[in-house]
Computed example of a mutant assay.
Amino acid sequence: MENPSKIVENGVVYSLGDFDGTTVHYDFYQILHYLEMKGKLLFGERFKIYKKDRPLIRKLCAFMIRDYNACKRYGLDCRKGILLTGPVGCGKTSLMKLVRYIVPGKLTYEMIPTRNVIFSFNHLGFKTVQEYGDSGSYCFDDLGLEPLGRFYGDNANVMGEVLLSRYELHQKSDHRLKTHATTNLSATELEDRYGQRVRSRMRALFNLMAFDSNSPDKRH
């Protein structure tokens, strides 16, 4: 039997905890060590995990590995997805790309820039809303910063429609199909962007996690 507590990268074995034959007992500091190494592979040698971000990362890791006891302590509903907010450059996108790798097997969701959804809509119309709204697990990156869609002369708030479809999927599914998102916008700004109805559905779709509003731009 493969040991799901071990991950091999470039021939090096990284441990995420201990496996007793049925359950992985994760160790957060071993996960951090792996995430920092994986981050350097994905984003370059300058990547680092900042100490002040660890409480947020701990919550996010607990959610990803389905540590139900920890999620309960943190007030996280495992049936929902994650809405990760924070200022520009704080590391939202990198973190959501990165934490997917601590779960053994294939990646649990696909990262989709919201602007790509709009580009697709502009070519294919409402088929795009159906594609992203009715199946799959996604993390929609930079929610609220995308332009309006336009198809045959008609403007459409495409991501608003996708979120409404994701809500319907959430209501009828077994919750294995997750909806995640990253955004720089506040709750009020999201409501201004998508309307009160979509904002209400977002409360049912997402657990809110937030970087500190004073988090520095880590891109420099």
Rank of each mutant, 00 (worst) to 15 (best):
M111V: 15
P216I: 05
L143V: 08
I112M: 13
P4W: 05
G136F: 06
E168F: 00
K72Q: 12
T128R: 11
R193F: 03
L185F: 11
R73E: 13
M37N: 06
G144I: 10
F119K: 15
H25G: 02
R176H: 08
E189P: 07
A181H: 00
N3D: 04
R150W: 10
R199T: 03
E9F: 03
D217G: 10
L32R: 15
K40Q: 05
V103D: 01
D77W: 00
I31E: 09
F43R: 00
G39S: 04
Y34H: 14
F19Q: 05
H180S: 02
L148P: 04
D20H: 04
P113W: 10
A156N: 03
R201T: 09
G39D: 11
L83G: 12
V198Q: 09
R115D: 13
G160Y: 03
R219I: 05
T93N: 07
R166S: 01
T179A: 03
R197G: 07
L177G: 01
M202K: 01
K106M: 10
I31N: 13
F119M: 15
G86L: 04
Y132D: 07
S200N: 01
L169M: 01
H180L: 00
L185G: 02
I112V: 15
E191Y: 03
F43Q: 06
G86W: 09
N10Y: 15
A210N: 14
V8Y: 06
D27G: 08
G125W: 08
V12H: 04
K51S: 11
L163T: 01
F140W: 07
I65C: 02
E45F: 02
R199Q: 03
M202A: 05
A204I: 04
R193V: 11
V158Q: 00
L16R: 03
R201P: 08
K172T: 02
K52Q: 11
L98K: 06
I102E: 05
F206Q: 07
R79W: 11
Q30L: 15
G89E: 12
A70W: 03
L41D: 14
L32A: 13
R73Y: 11
C61S: 02
R219W: 02
E146K: 00
N207K: 09
S15H: 12
S165F: 05
E36F: 11
